[in-house]
Design a protein around this nucleic acid. Sequence first.
DNA 1: CCAGTTAAACAACACTGTTTCCTAAGTGCA
DNA 2: TGCACTTAGGAAACAGTGTTGTTTAACTGG
Lengths: 377, 377
Amino acid sequence: MTTPPGPAGHSRPAGTNLAGLRDHNAALVLGLLRAAPQGGSRVELATRTGLTPQAIGKITARLLAEGMIVEAGQAASTGGKPRTLLRLRAEAACAVGVHLERDELTVLLVDLAGRHHHVHTEPVDRAVTPAEAVRLITARIGRAAADLPAGARLLGAGVGCRGPLDHAAGVLHWFTPPGTRDPAGWDRYPLRDELAARLDGLPVVVDKDTNTAALAEAPAIPRPVGGLAYVHLAAGLGAGLLLDGALHRGTRTNAGEFGHQTVQIDGPPCDCGNQGCLEVLCLAELRRGDHAAAARLLGVGVANLVRLLDIDRVVLGGRAVLSAPQVYLAGVTAQIEARIPDPDWQPVPVSVSTAGRLAVAVGAAELVLGPLFGRRT
Amino acid sequence: MTTPPGPAGHSRPAGTNLAGLRDHNAALVLGLLRAAPQGGSRVELATRTGLTPQAIGKITARLLAEGMIVEAGQAASTGGKPRTLLRLRAEAACAVGVHLERDELTVLLVDLAGRHHHVHTEPVDRAVTPAEAVRLITARIGRAAADLPAGARLLGAGVGCRGPLDHAAGVLHWFTPPGTRDPAGWDRYPLRDELAARLDGLPVVVDKDTNTAALAEAPAIPRPVGGLAYVHLAAGLGAGLLLDGALHRGTRTNAGEFGHQTVQIDGPPCDCGNQGCLEVLCLAELRRGDHAAAARLLGVGVANLVRLLDIDRVVLGGRAVLSAPQVYLAGVTAQIEARIPDPDWQPVPVSVSTAGRLAVAVGAAELVLGPLFGRRT
DNA sequence: CCAGTTAAACAACACTGTTTCCTAAGTGCA
DNA sequence: TGCACTTAGGAAACAGTGTTGTTTAACTGG
């Protein structure tokens, strides 16, 4: 047992004490109640968690006292005393979701039930410096906080933006090509810590836009999700992977490089140095305005993804997809069906991101809300 | 909160009580000690787990009393009382690893330190029925158990075999093509339960060969592993994915369908119904005896995998690879370097499975041993 | 030899879920 | 209406976890 292995800071302690045990079980209960907007009973919570009814009684009593949940009527009797229903108190706490794009900033406020209490989008100068962006975001979060429901706690802020970046450190890696400059100074910018410092230590989490967009779909899905893939087609082509209920980021937060998979060996060269990348082919069709052809190509990549990871559900998003959703739905579905004829694979549902253009910001808020409901980070 | 979501039996309770807390922390301690063959001190365990020295004292006292660990000398003093070193007691427990191939059966016995106490390989008739195979495996496990070190507990048996199969249920899905027959009755055979019944309720776990082979590499790697991919080239082409310290199987245990990714749109047709599959191209080169060309193709697929999942380490295995390891190492490494020139990606080490032909069986034993050391299943 | 330092155990404690028992609040039938 | 039955949920005592505060053990260095 010598020094800690791997990159520094990567082996956070995992020992659990009584406080951790309590929080784990409370999060489990809250997560189950989130999945049941109409409410759930103590008895169901006990069977679903595997805890004794008495333990659930204590946990729910604590959550009631803290104002995280409320009693909400009764269920129909099944021959004895009717069950008391418990519901999440949506306005008990909120999280901020931020989507920082090249030319646009979106800030919104989401409560425990996923309702939006504040949504604001504004254009941003493409030449903005990191410091200016941080000032802008801070100001916008301040305004959003003014819309907090009475008594609601503000849990933190999640930020989604393009990669590459280091999620664990909260640092951007917006390389500029060698030879050129990065006058604004975005590369190696410690976005998380700079934001947290200006927000009075409010917890801040930074992640790739594709990752947060994938998370935006998570609350609607009963746990555990075997595999959900969010595929984003806009100026680039990327993916967010929600595997076994948690985002898969990889040690360098580089997972999801969906666009640079080779689908045509010895195909046309790509800026990334590779050749025959899906992205090159797909963007070429987009420039031609041929969404159907782009969708077909996208479908080839999605089919690869689905097979490789045994994906249960595919969600499409990004400006290109949102501009012609039906075309992409049909094209991707057709490729999946054509390329995965195996009967053992249940039909893999493909849908378009329900949050639409807000998907990244909504998912960014979920970065903060998720752990409260027991999602692994 | 209506009925349990998803396929039945998939949402196992996750509530934790004191016993679970104790086991979790004990597993954490055992895992840390496994990664330190020369021994580790209580103080280090405390800092690494985040638990108090006192808690570690109680946990190690329990483990000492149970015979799971032993004191093993002292570390050099750093100015005060020297630390007492603790080591795993390798012979405290063992697990059986089984590799069931079409024409061969391998059974081995692995102790807590990963040492093999029994290794046996024998040919098997390709037309063997499931019942005969179960009898054979049972008999072989009986002989292996005779080689158990004195006082060692037998924790269970892991079985690795070709897919598709259902890991959660322990049932094989060895479909036969429509029209043909499955005279031996392998399809839908409940291998896990049949084995467990004949082994007096000994815990049995069944998984795909590629998954267990990936697991075979895990003990040597300091946790947490961001992403390890085991790529297997023999009669087919598959992969096992070890993501964030746990195998990623997908809900249908179908993850790892590496061979059927499309790398040549409109390429030659594949038996699977798709066209341009990596496997078709790769096996064609193999039949031609051109390992270098096969390696190049393999490298294309591996580069896709590495980028998509931010893989940290690639392990190659399977009969084809083992027949010309250097060719595959060089070919795959070259493709990774050529197709992922991004400087942000640290060089991704590629190696050949250290366990060689025993990889699947060794990893099958790890299916049983892993949870003891805190690996998520 | 002794102060200083570090490791590890002892004892009392806080707090978790569990067990056991009891009360509350319905249903259904006579 | 009465009463047995069923089911939900709380009260109290309990077992066992890691924590806190204190003490003892063992080695270094002047």
